[in-house]
Design a binder for these strands. Structure first.
Lengths: 208, 208
DNA sequence: GCAAAATGTGACGACTAGTTCACAGTTTAA
DNA sequence: TTAAACTGTGAACTAGTCGTCACATTTTGC
Protein backbone atom coordinates (compact mmCIF):
# COMPACT_ATOMS: atom_id res chain seq x y z
CA UNK A 1 0.00 0.00 0.00
CA UNK A 2 1.29 3.40 -0.86
CA UNK A 3 -0.31 5.01 2.23
CA UNK A 4 2.40 3.43 4.35
CA UNK A 5 4.63 6.47 4.48
CA UNK A 6 1.93 9.11 4.54
CA UNK A 7 1.16 11.17 7.60
CA UNK A 8 -2.24 10.98 9.26
CA UNK A 9 -3.11 14.32 7.71
CA UNK A 10 -2.13 13.20 4.24
CA UNK A 11 -4.19 10.08 4.55
CA UNK A 12 -7.15 12.16 5.63
CA UNK A 13 -6.83 14.43 2.62
CA UNK A 14 -6.67 11.44 0.33
CA UNK A 15 -9.79 10.12 1.95
CA UNK A 16 -11.58 13.47 1.57
CA UNK A 17 -10.61 13.60 -2.04
CA UNK A 18 -12.11 10.19 -2.54
CA UNK A 19 -15.33 11.27 -0.83
CA UNK A 20 -15.61 14.12 -3.28
CA UNK A 21 -14.91 11.88 -6.24
CA UNK A 22 -17.49 9.34 -5.11
CA UNK A 23 -20.16 11.99 -4.76
CA UNK A 24 -19.27 13.42 -8.15
CA UNK A 25 -19.26 10.03 -9.88
CA UNK A 26 -22.75 9.32 -8.63
CA UNK A 27 -24.10 12.64 -9.78
CA UNK A 28 -22.32 12.72 -13.14
CA UNK A 29 -23.42 9.21 -14.04
CA UNK A 30 -27.02 10.04 -13.12
CA UNK A 31 -27.28 13.35 -14.89
CA UNK A 32 -24.22 14.02 -16.99
CA UNK A 33 -21.54 16.67 -16.74
CA UNK A 34 -23.63 19.67 -17.66
CA UNK A 35 -26.60 18.86 -15.47
CA UNK A 36 -24.61 18.67 -12.27
CA UNK A 37 -23.50 21.78 -10.40
CA UNK A 38 -20.51 22.14 -8.11
CA UNK A 39 -22.95 23.08 -5.37
CA UNK A 40 -24.67 19.72 -5.73
CA UNK A 41 -21.38 17.88 -5.51
CA UNK A 42 -20.46 19.93 -2.47
CA UNK A 43 -23.78 19.14 -0.82
CA UNK A 44 -23.63 15.44 -1.48
CA UNK A 45 -20.03 15.09 -0.35
CA UNK A 46 -20.72 17.35 2.66
CA UNK A 47 -17.97 19.80 1.98
CA UNK A 48 -18.18 23.48 1.17
CA UNK A 49 -17.85 24.60 -2.41
CA UNK A 50 -14.59 26.35 -1.64
CA UNK A 51 -13.14 23.09 -0.37
CA UNK A 52 -13.82 21.37 -3.67
CA UNK A 53 -11.70 24.01 -5.31
CA UNK A 54 -8.85 23.29 -2.92
CA UNK A 55 -8.73 19.78 -4.35
CA UNK A 56 -9.60 20.34 -8.00
CA UNK A 57 -8.69 23.25 -10.23
CA UNK A 58 -12.22 23.46 -11.59
CA UNK A 59 -15.22 21.39 -12.56
CA UNK A 60 -13.61 20.04 -15.68
CA UNK A 61 -10.55 18.95 -13.76
CA UNK A 62 -12.76 17.07 -11.33
CA UNK A 63 -14.46 15.30 -14.21
CA UNK A 64 -11.18 14.46 -15.89
CA UNK A 65 -9.81 12.94 -12.71
CA UNK A 66 -12.71 10.54 -12.62
CA UNK A 67 -12.60 9.52 -16.24
CA UNK A 68 -8.86 9.25 -16.63
CA UNK A 69 -8.46 7.15 -13.50
CA UNK A 70 -11.27 4.85 -14.49
CA UNK A 71 -10.16 4.46 -18.09
CA UNK A 72 -6.77 3.52 -16.75
CA UNK A 73 -8.28 0.85 -14.50
CA UNK A 74 -10.18 -0.61 -17.43
CA UNK A 75 -7.33 -0.59 -19.88
CA UNK A 76 -4.82 -1.98 -17.42
CA UNK A 77 -7.08 -4.86 -16.46
CA UNK A 78 -7.82 -5.72 -20.07
CA UNK A 79 -4.24 -5.47 -21.22
CA UNK A 80 -3.23 -7.79 -18.42
CA UNK A 81 -5.98 -10.22 -19.39
CA UNK A 82 -4.51 -10.39 -22.87
CA UNK A 83 -0.95 -10.78 -21.60
CA UNK A 84 -1.42 -13.40 -18.94
CA UNK A 85 -3.27 -16.14 -20.75
CA UNK A 86 -1.64 -18.59 -23.14
CA UNK A 87 -3.21 -19.37 -26.47
CA UNK A 88 -5.23 -17.02 -28.63
CA UNK A 89 -8.66 -18.38 -27.77
CA UNK A 90 -7.90 -18.32 -24.08
CA UNK A 91 -6.79 -14.71 -24.38
CA UNK A 92 -10.08 -13.81 -26.03
CA UNK A 93 -12.05 -15.67 -23.38
CA UNK A 94 -10.16 -13.89 -20.67
CA UNK A 95 -10.75 -10.52 -22.35
CA UNK A 96 -14.49 -11.05 -22.47
CA UNK A 97 -14.65 -12.33 -18.91
CA UNK A 98 -12.46 -9.68 -17.33
CA UNK A 99 -14.19 -6.91 -19.20
CA UNK A 100 -17.51 -8.07 -17.78
CA UNK A 101 -16.13 -8.31 -14.29
CA UNK A 102 -14.35 -4.97 -14.21
CA UNK A 103 -17.17 -3.06 -15.83
CA UNK A 104 -19.80 -4.58 -13.61
CA UNK A 105 -17.73 -3.60 -10.60
CA UNK A 106 -17.87 0.01 -11.72
CA UNK A 107 -21.37 0.44 -13.00
CA UNK A 108 -21.75 4.12 -12.35
CA UNK A 109 -18.66 5.14 -14.26
CA UNK A 110 -19.27 2.88 -17.22
CA UNK A 111 -21.84 5.24 -18.70
CA UNK A 112 -19.35 8.07 -18.48
CA UNK A 113 -16.62 5.91 -19.93
CA UNK A 114 -18.85 4.95 -22.84
CA UNK A 115 -19.77 8.56 -23.42
CA UNK A 116 -16.11 9.54 -23.59
CA UNK A 117 -14.88 6.70 -25.77
CA UNK A 118 -17.73 6.67 -28.25
CA UNK A 119 -17.33 10.13 -29.76
CA UNK A 120 -20.57 11.24 -28.20
CA UNK A 121 -18.61 13.22 -25.69
CA UNK A 122 -19.47 16.87 -25.64
CA UNK A 123 -18.54 17.24 -22.01
CA UNK A 124 -14.98 18.33 -22.13
CA UNK A 125 -13.62 21.13 -24.25
CA UNK A 126 -10.86 19.06 -25.82
CA UNK A 127 -8.02 16.76 -25.07
CA UNK A 128 -9.45 14.27 -22.63
CA UNK A 129 -11.07 12.52 -25.47
CA UNK A 130 -7.69 12.18 -27.13
CA UNK A 131 -5.88 11.17 -23.98
CA UNK A 132 -8.20 8.22 -23.39
CA UNK A 133 -8.50 7.34 -27.04
CA UNK A 134 -4.80 6.74 -27.33
CA UNK A 135 -4.79 4.29 -24.43
CA UNK A 136 -7.85 2.67 -25.94
CA UNK A 137 -6.21 2.40 -29.34
CA UNK A 138 -3.24 0.66 -27.72
CA UNK A 139 -5.58 -1.90 -26.23
CA UNK A 140 -7.18 -2.44 -29.62
CA UNK A 141 -3.73 -2.96 -31.13
CA UNK A 142 -2.99 -5.58 -28.52
CA UNK A 143 -6.25 -7.32 -29.36
CA UNK A 144 -5.47 -7.02 -33.05
CA UNK A 145 -2.21 -8.80 -32.35
CA UNK A 146 -4.03 -11.74 -30.81
CA UNK A 147 -6.22 -12.18 -33.87
CA UNK A 148 -3.26 -11.74 -36.21
CA UNK A 149 -1.28 -14.38 -34.32
CA UNK A 150 -4.19 -16.81 -34.40
CA UNK A 151 -4.54 -16.36 -38.12
CA UNK A 152 -0.84 -16.70 -38.71
CA UNK A 153 -0.74 -19.93 -36.73
CA UNK A 154 -3.64 -21.20 -38.81
CA UNK A 155 -5.79 -21.51 -35.73
CA UNK A 156 -8.14 -18.83 -36.99
CA UNK A 157 -9.53 -18.39 -40.45
CA UNK A 158 -9.08 -14.94 -41.90
CA UNK A 159 -12.74 -14.02 -42.01
CA UNK A 160 -11.83 -10.32 -41.70
CA UNK A 161 -8.91 -7.99 -41.10
CA UNK A 162 -7.39 -8.55 -37.64
CA UNK A 163 -8.05 -4.93 -36.70
CA UNK A 164 -11.66 -5.26 -37.74
CA UNK A 165 -11.94 -8.39 -35.65
CA UNK A 166 -10.55 -6.54 -32.66
CA UNK A 167 -12.98 -3.67 -33.12
CA UNK A 168 -15.77 -6.19 -33.54
CA UNK A 169 -15.07 -8.10 -30.38
CA UNK A 170 -14.80 -4.87 -28.45
CA UNK A 171 -18.03 -3.64 -29.91
CA UNK A 172 -19.81 -6.91 -29.15
CA UNK A 173 -18.77 -6.89 -25.52
CA UNK A 174 -19.86 -3.28 -25.29
CA UNK A 175 -23.22 -4.17 -26.74
CA UNK A 176 -23.74 -6.90 -24.15
CA UNK A 177 -22.65 -4.58 -21.37
CA UNK A 178 -25.03 -1.99 -22.69
CA UNK A 179 -27.91 -4.44 -22.61
CA UNK A 180 -26.99 -5.36 -19.07
CA UNK A 181 -26.75 -1.72 -18.06
CA UNK A 182 -30.29 -1.06 -19.24
CA UNK A 183 -31.92 -4.15 -17.77
CA UNK A 184 -29.59 -6.17 -15.56
CA UNK A 185 -32.18 -8.85 -14.80
CA UNK A 186 -33.51 -9.25 -18.28
CA UNK A 187 -30.14 -9.18 -20.03
CA UNK A 188 -27.40 -10.39 -17.70
CA UNK A 189 -23.86 -10.28 -19.02
CA UNK A 190 -23.12 -13.94 -19.81
CA UNK A 191 -21.02 -15.92 -17.36
CA UNK A 192 -19.75 -18.05 -20.17
CA UNK A 193 -17.61 -15.92 -22.48
CA UNK A 194 -18.36 -18.28 -25.35
CA UNK A 195 -21.90 -16.92 -25.54
CA UNK A 196 -20.32 -13.78 -26.95
CA UNK A 197 -17.33 -15.36 -28.63
CA UNK A 198 -19.39 -17.87 -30.58
CA UNK A 199 -20.88 -15.02 -32.57
CA UNK A 200 -17.46 -14.49 -34.06
CA UNK A 201 -16.02 -17.97 -33.70
CA UNK A 202 -18.78 -20.14 -35.07
CA UNK A 203 -20.20 -19.63 -38.54
CA UNK A 204 -23.80 -18.55 -38.83
CA UNK A 205 -24.21 -19.93 -42.32
CA UNK A 206 -24.95 -23.62 -42.59
CA UNK A 207 -23.00 -24.39 -45.74
CA UNK A 208 -19.42 -23.15 -45.92
CA UNK B 1 -44.89 16.38 -52.77
CA UNK B 2 -46.84 17.74 -49.88
CA UNK B 3 -45.96 21.36 -50.69
CA UNK B 4 -48.38 21.27 -53.60
CA UNK B 5 -51.29 22.84 -51.76
CA UNK B 6 -49.30 25.24 -49.60
CA UNK B 7 -49.28 28.95 -50.16
CA UNK B 8 -46.09 30.74 -51.07
CA UNK B 9 -45.93 32.06 -47.51
CA UNK B 10 -46.32 28.65 -46.01
CA UNK B 11 -43.61 27.24 -48.19
CA UNK B 12 -41.35 30.07 -47.14
CA UNK B 13 -41.96 29.36 -43.48
CA UNK B 14 -41.15 25.72 -44.04
CA UNK B 15 -37.98 26.74 -45.75
CA UNK B 16 -37.06 29.11 -42.94
CA UNK B 17 -37.66 26.36 -40.43
CA UNK B 18 -35.32 24.13 -42.37
CA UNK B 19 -32.66 26.84 -42.41
CA UNK B 20 -32.84 27.02 -38.64
CA UNK B 21 -32.68 23.26 -38.29
CA UNK B 22 -29.68 23.03 -40.59
CA UNK B 23 -27.79 25.65 -38.64
CA UNK B 24 -28.68 23.94 -35.39
CA UNK B 25 -27.68 20.49 -36.62
CA UNK B 26 -24.28 21.76 -37.60
CA UNK B 27 -23.67 23.41 -34.27
CA UNK B 28 -25.07 20.63 -32.11
CA UNK B 29 -23.07 17.97 -33.86
CA UNK B 30 -19.90 20.03 -33.49
CA UNK B 31 -20.30 20.99 -29.87
CA UNK B 32 -23.22 19.18 -28.30
CA UNK B 33 -26.47 20.46 -26.88
CA UNK B 34 -25.11 22.26 -23.86
CA UNK B 35 -22.25 24.01 -25.61
CA UNK B 36 -24.44 25.71 -28.18
CA UNK B 37 -26.45 28.82 -27.37
CA UNK B 38 -29.63 29.97 -29.03
CA UNK B 39 -27.79 33.14 -29.97
CA UNK B 40 -25.26 31.10 -31.92
CA UNK B 41 -27.99 29.26 -33.77
CA UNK B 42 -29.67 32.57 -34.51
CA UNK B 43 -26.44 34.05 -35.83
CA UNK B 44 -25.62 31.09 -38.05
CA UNK B 45 -29.11 30.83 -39.47
CA UNK B 46 -29.26 34.62 -39.87
CA UNK B 47 -32.47 35.06 -37.93
CA UNK B 48 -33.09 36.94 -34.71
CA UNK B 49 -33.34 35.03 -31.46
CA UNK B 50 -36.99 35.95 -31.14
CA UNK B 51 -37.71 34.39 -34.50
CA UNK B 52 -36.30 31.06 -33.38
CA UNK B 53 -38.82 31.11 -30.56
CA UNK B 54 -41.64 31.68 -33.05
CA UNK B 55 -40.76 28.33 -34.62
CA UNK B 56 -39.71 26.30 -31.60
CA UNK B 57 -41.07 26.37 -28.08
CA UNK B 58 -37.59 26.36 -26.60
CA UNK B 59 -34.09 25.04 -27.08
CA UNK B 60 -35.01 21.53 -26.08
CA UNK B 61 -37.90 21.47 -28.52
CA UNK B 62 -35.55 22.50 -31.30
CA UNK B 63 -33.18 19.69 -30.40
CA UNK B 64 -35.97 17.15 -30.19
CA UNK B 65 -37.24 18.11 -33.62
CA UNK B 66 -33.86 17.30 -35.08
CA UNK B 67 -33.35 13.99 -33.34
CA UNK B 68 -36.86 12.65 -33.68
CA UNK B 69 -37.05 13.44 -37.36
CA UNK B 70 -33.67 11.91 -38.05
CA UNK B 71 -34.29 8.79 -36.00
CA UNK B 72 -37.47 8.33 -37.95
CA UNK B 73 -35.60 8.58 -41.24
CA UNK B 74 -33.09 5.97 -40.09
CA UNK B 75 -35.60 3.54 -38.72
CA UNK B 76 -37.95 3.81 -41.66
CA UNK B 77 -35.17 3.19 -44.16
CA UNK B 78 -33.87 0.18 -42.25
CA UNK B 79 -37.25 -1.34 -41.66
CA UNK B 80 -37.96 -1.07 -45.36
CA UNK B 81 -34.63 -2.67 -46.15
CA UNK B 82 -35.64 -5.67 -44.06
CA UNK B 83 -39.10 -5.86 -45.59
CA UNK B 84 -38.30 -5.50 -49.25
CA UNK B 85 -35.67 -8.14 -49.80
CA UNK B 86 -36.39 -11.83 -50.10
CA UNK B 87 -34.33 -14.37 -48.23
CA UNK B 88 -32.71 -13.94 -44.86
CA UNK B 89 -29.17 -13.37 -46.06
CA UNK B 90 -30.31 -10.85 -48.61
CA UNK B 91 -32.21 -8.99 -45.91
CA UNK B 92 -29.10 -8.80 -43.77
CA UNK B 93 -27.01 -7.61 -46.73
CA UNK B 94 -29.57 -4.95 -47.48
CA UNK B 95 -29.63 -3.85 -43.84
CA UNK B 96 -25.87 -3.38 -43.74
CA UNK B 97 -25.80 -1.60 -47.09
CA UNK B 98 -28.72 0.73 -46.48
CA UNK B 99 -27.51 1.59 -43.01
CA UNK B 100 -24.19 2.65 -44.45
CA UNK B 101 -25.83 4.69 -47.17
CA UNK B 102 -28.36 6.48 -45.00
CA UNK B 103 -25.95 7.24 -42.21
CA UNK B 104 -23.27 8.49 -44.53
CA UNK B 105 -25.82 10.79 -46.10
CA UNK B 106 -26.44 12.36 -42.73
CA UNK B 107 -23.02 12.56 -41.18
CA UNK B 108 -23.60 15.47 -38.90
CA UNK B 109 -26.65 14.02 -37.19
CA UNK B 110 -25.19 10.57 -36.74
CA UNK B 111 -23.14 11.67 -33.74
CA UNK B 112 -26.26 13.07 -32.12
CA UNK B 113 -28.21 9.95 -32.98
CA UNK B 114 -25.52 7.77 -31.45
CA UNK B 115 -25.47 9.91 -28.33
CA UNK B 116 -29.23 9.55 -27.91
CA UNK B 117 -29.48 5.83 -28.62
CA UNK B 118 -26.48 4.73 -26.61
CA UNK B 119 -27.57 5.73 -23.14
CA UNK B 120 -24.90 8.39 -23.03
CA UNK B 121 -27.55 10.99 -23.56
CA UNK B 122 -27.64 13.61 -20.87
CA UNK B 123 -28.95 16.27 -23.21
CA UNK B 124 -32.65 16.06 -22.73
CA UNK B 125 -34.43 15.99 -19.40
CA UNK B 126 -36.44 12.87 -20.12
CA UNK B 127 -38.69 11.23 -22.62
CA UNK B 128 -36.92 11.71 -25.91
CA UNK B 129 -34.63 8.93 -25.03
CA UNK B 130 -37.61 6.66 -24.50
CA UNK B 131 -39.43 7.85 -27.58
CA UNK B 132 -36.54 6.92 -29.84
CA UNK B 133 -35.65 3.79 -27.95
CA UNK B 134 -39.03 2.28 -28.60
CA UNK B 135 -38.75 2.79 -32.33
CA UNK B 136 -35.26 1.38 -32.16
CA UNK B 137 -36.41 -1.65 -30.20
CA UNK B 138 -39.02 -2.30 -32.88
CA UNK B 139 -36.31 -2.34 -35.50
CA UNK B 140 -34.27 -4.74 -33.41
CA UNK B 141 -37.30 -7.00 -33.13
CA UNK B 142 -37.66 -6.98 -36.88
CA UNK B 143 -34.01 -7.94 -37.22
CA UNK B 144 -34.43 -10.60 -34.57
CA UNK B 145 -37.21 -12.04 -36.67
CA UNK B 146 -34.92 -12.38 -39.66
CA UNK B 147 -32.38 -14.35 -37.65
CA UNK B 148 -35.08 -16.47 -36.07
CA UNK B 149 -36.57 -17.28 -39.47
CA UNK B 150 -33.16 -18.22 -40.87
CA UNK B 151 -32.54 -20.55 -37.97
CA UNK B 152 -35.97 -22.07 -38.22
CA UNK B 153 -35.49 -22.75 -41.91
CA UNK B 154 -32.15 -24.38 -41.10
CA UNK B 155 -30.35 -21.82 -43.20
CA UNK B 156 -28.59 -20.45 -40.14
CA UNK B 157 -26.98 -22.34 -37.32
CA UNK B 158 -28.11 -21.26 -33.89
CA UNK B 159 -24.78 -19.86 -32.75
CA UNK B 160 -26.58 -17.46 -30.38
CA UNK B 161 -30.04 -16.23 -29.43
CA UNK B 162 -31.72 -14.45 -32.33
CA UNK B 163 -32.06 -11.27 -30.28
CA UNK B 164 -28.38 -11.38 -29.43
CA UNK B 165 -27.59 -11.82 -33.09
CA UNK B 166 -29.69 -8.78 -33.92
CA UNK B 167 -27.99 -6.67 -31.29
CA UNK B 168 -24.64 -7.94 -32.52
CA UNK B 169 -25.21 -7.05 -36.14
CA UNK B 170 -26.45 -3.62 -35.16
CA UNK B 171 -23.47 -3.11 -32.92
CA UNK B 172 -21.04 -4.25 -35.63
CA UNK B 173 -22.44 -1.86 -38.19
CA UNK B 174 -22.30 0.92 -35.62
CA UNK B 175 -18.67 0.08 -34.92
CA UNK B 176 -17.78 0.32 -38.60
CA UNK B 177 -19.70 3.56 -38.93
CA UNK B 178 -17.89 4.88 -35.92
CA UNK B 179 -14.52 4.04 -37.45
CA UNK B 180 -15.55 5.78 -40.61
CA UNK B 181 -16.80 8.81 -38.70
CA UNK B 182 -13.40 9.24 -37.04
CA UNK B 183 -11.24 8.68 -40.09
CA UNK B 184 -13.24 8.41 -43.32
CA UNK B 185 -10.18 7.86 -45.49
CA UNK B 186 -8.42 5.39 -43.27
CA UNK B 187 -11.50 3.37 -42.39
CA UNK B 188 -14.09 3.61 -45.13
CA UNK B 189 -17.39 1.88 -44.53
CA UNK B 190 -17.14 -1.24 -46.72
CA UNK B 191 -18.95 -1.24 -50.06
CA UNK B 192 -19.35 -4.98 -49.81
CA UNK B 193 -21.69 -5.78 -46.90
CA UNK B 194 -20.09 -9.20 -46.58
CA UNK B 195 -16.98 -7.61 -45.09
CA UNK B 196 -19.10 -6.97 -42.03
CA UNK B 197 -21.44 -9.94 -42.33
CA UNK B 198 -18.63 -12.47 -42.61
CA UNK B 199 -17.67 -11.72 -39.03
CA UNK B 200 -20.95 -13.27 -38.00
CA UNK B 201 -21.54 -15.61 -40.92
CA UNK B 202 -18.20 -17.35 -41.26
CA UNK B 203 -16.60 -19.17 -38.38
CA UNK B 204 -13.36 -17.81 -37.01
CA UNK B 205 -12.24 -21.13 -35.59
CA UNK B 206 -10.62 -23.52 -37.98
CA UNK B 207 -11.96 -26.78 -36.60
CA UNK B 208 -15.71 -26.94 -35.94
C1' DG C 1 -52.60 53.24 -51.88
C1' DC C 2 -53.65 52.24 -47.19
C1' DA C 3 -55.02 50.19 -42.93
C1' DA C 4 -55.04 45.95 -40.52
C1' DA C 5 -52.87 41.65 -39.68
C1' DA C 6 -48.93 38.97 -39.53
C1' DT C 7 -44.22 38.52 -38.96
C1' DG C 8 -39.40 39.53 -37.55
C1' DT C 9 -36.37 41.84 -34.17
C1' DG C 10 -32.98 42.23 -30.39
C1' DA C 11 -32.54 44.70 -25.97
C1' DC C 12 -33.61 43.23 -21.55
C1' DG C 13 -35.18 40.75 -17.22
C1' DA C 14 -34.46 36.87 -14.46
C1' DC C 15 -31.83 33.41 -13.20
C1' DT C 16 -28.35 29.88 -12.89
C1' DA C 17 -23.88 28.20 -12.08
C1' DG C 18 -18.63 28.51 -11.96
C1' DT C 19 -15.12 30.50 -9.39
C1' DT C 20 -12.86 33.54 -5.89
C1' DC C 21 -11.33 35.17 -1.48
C1' DA C 22 -11.42 37.24 3.07
C1' DC C 23 -12.17 35.25 7.16
C1' DA C 24 -13.14 31.85 10.89
C1' DG C 25 -11.79 27.71 12.77
C1' DT C 26 -8.31 24.19 13.55
C1' DT C 27 -3.92 22.13 13.91
C1' DT C 28 0.98 22.38 14.79
C1' DA C 29 5.21 23.37 17.03
C1' DA C 30 7.87 25.80 20.34
C1' DT D 1 0.05 28.57 26.44
C1' DT D 2 0.40 30.90 22.39
C1' DA D 3 1.48 32.38 17.92
C1' DA D 4 2.09 30.96 13.31
C1' DA D 5 0.67 28.04 9.59
C1' DC D 6 -2.71 25.63 7.52
C1' DT D 7 -7.47 24.28 6.24
C1' DG D 8 -12.40 24.75 5.47
C1' DT D 9 -16.16 27.94 4.57
C1' DG D 10 -19.89 30.15 1.96
C1' DA D 11 -21.30 34.88 0.68
C1' DA D 12 -20.40 37.53 -3.16
C1' DC D 13 -18.77 38.35 -7.72
C1' DT D 14 -18.93 37.36 -12.60
C1' DA D 15 -20.23 35.60 -16.85
C1' DG D 16 -23.34 33.92 -19.76
C1' DT D 17 -27.77 32.07 -21.35
C1' DC D 18 -32.76 31.27 -21.78
C1' DG D 19 -36.90 33.08 -23.05
C1' DT D 20 -40.07 37.43 -23.35
C1' DC D 21 -42.22 41.26 -25.32
C1' DA D 22 -42.96 45.96 -26.98
C1' DC D 23 -41.87 47.68 -31.12
C1' DA D 24 -40.37 47.92 -36.16
C1' DT D 25 -41.03 45.98 -40.54
C1' DT D 26 -43.31 43.51 -44.02
C1' DT D 27 -47.22 41.40 -46.11
C1' DT D 28 -52.06 41.03 -47.09
C1' DG D 29 -56.68 42.24 -48.34
C1' DC D 30 -59.53 45.80 -49.82
Amino acid sequence: MKDATLSRREREKLWQRQEMLTAAIGLFSEKGFHNVSMLEIAKRSEFAIGTLYKFFKNKEDLYRSIIVKQADTFHTALTRALNEEDGEIEKLRSYVKIKGAVFMDNVSVVRLYFAETRGASFNIKAGLDKEIREEYELLLQKLTGVFAAGIQKKRFQKIAEPYHLAVSLDSLTNAFLHLWLEAPDEHPYPDDPDVILNIICKGLLVEP
